[in-house]
């Protein structure tokens, strides 16, 4: 990863120096252990702070719609698909972005590390990655875990570790090796429930929602200037965090991102009250694939799923 990081810094500097981009968006070390934070800069001296490690969690493409000018952006596989999807929706112009791709090995889910070690993240001394094992050091001990136990669910099922679209690739492309069983564990549980049990499950989960809208705001597919929850005439859903309204909010949000969601996992990761949002978004992702044989963000020239229809396939009410 060190090599990749050096190459990234060099490429980013060159892009800024040659005036090919106005901004670089990447990751720099965060202020807490095992974190990174988005670095958005015009200054070529800042590129020395760019890092690549298993904690580069944010989907940076979410910043593209708010920046003016040309942008060099660091992406993982899933993030690149979000950019492609934004291009399909005319939200981003391909020529305005220089995509710097990372062939991604997956990211470490600190909540899982906490679970398997029984320690909080700030009590761990080190997390190191070797091949298919992750070594965690704490209290003077070392424990080794298979990556499968500590990677994010969505990373375990990743279909596209190499960015789908890029201008610069920082390493050799990586073949996809999705582990569906591991990645669908939470969904599997829900599949096995009766509809009453599922209803109770979601009622309980959504009772915790505080309507911080982090799930929406971290999501590159949620690009509406004004979200339907903010409309008061008509009022589709109350901005009051009652579980029923929370559930409706999330159901509608998932319909709105259908065909745009790339299973980047950011919504679930960002949720401060641990609502398993990916169990909805990933299910929608699967439904879109089953019903329309469509996967978001795979082809920038393909017509977007939800804003396009053919006359001959239209339902009567639409004609």
């Amino acid at each position: 990863m060190k090599e990749m990081e050096q190459r990234l810094q060099k490429e980013a500097r060159a892009l800024l120096e040659q005036g090919k981009v106005d901004y670089i968006i990447g990751f720099e070390p965060g202020s807490l252990k095992f974190t990174t934070t988005p670095l958005i800069t015009k200054d070529k001296e800042d590129v020395e702070r760019l890092v690549i490690n298993p904690f580069i969690v944010n989907n940076l493409s979410v910043f593209l719609t708010e920046l003016q000018g040309r942008v060099g952006i660091v992406v993982k596989g899933c993030d690149s698909r979000s950019i492609v999807s934004l291009i399909q929706d005319n939200k981003v112009v391909r020529e305005d972005v220089v995509i710097i791709g990372i062939p991604c090995t997956g990211l470490i889910d600190l909540s899982k590390v906490e679970l398997v070690t029984g320690k909080d993240r700030d009590e761990l001394d080190d997390i190191a990655w070797q091949g298919d094992k992750i070594t965690v050091r704490f209290d003077g001990e070392e424990k080794v875990f298979p990556t499968e136990e500590v990677l994010f669910d969505n990373c375990l099922g990743c279909e596209c570790p190499t960015p789908q679209e890029y201008d610069i690739l920082l390493g050799e492309p990586r073949p996809a090796a999705p582990n569906l069983t591991a990645s669908r564990k939470n969904l599997e549980k829900l599949d096995g429930m009766s509809s009453e049990e599922r209803w109770d499950f979601w009622k309980n989960e959504f009772s915790r929602c505080i309507r911080c809208y982090a799930c929406r705001n971290v999501c590159p597919a949620c690009f509406c200037k004004r979200c339907f929850v903010e409309e008061s005439e008509p009022q589709w859903v109350l901005p009051v965090p009652r579980w029923q309204d929370n559930l409706i909010f999330q159901v509608i949000r998932n319909i709105h991102v259908a065909g745009r969601c790339t299973d980047c996992g950011e919504c679930e990761r960002a949720c401060p009250v641990n609502i398993p949002l990916r169990s909805l978004s990933k299910r929608m992702y699967e439904l879109v694939d089953e019903l329309f044989q469509f996967k978001a963000g795979m082809d920038k020239d393909a017509v977007p799923l939800m804003t396009h229809y053919e006359l001959e396939e239209a339902e009567d009410f639409i004609r």
Binding site: V62, C212, A214, R216
Partner: peptide, 13 residues
């Protein structure tokens, strides 16, 4: 402010 995504977490919590 450049990396903030304007969610409500830091204030609501």
């Amino acid at each position: 402010a450049d990396n903030c995504i304007s969610c409500g977490i830091c204030t609501l919590l």
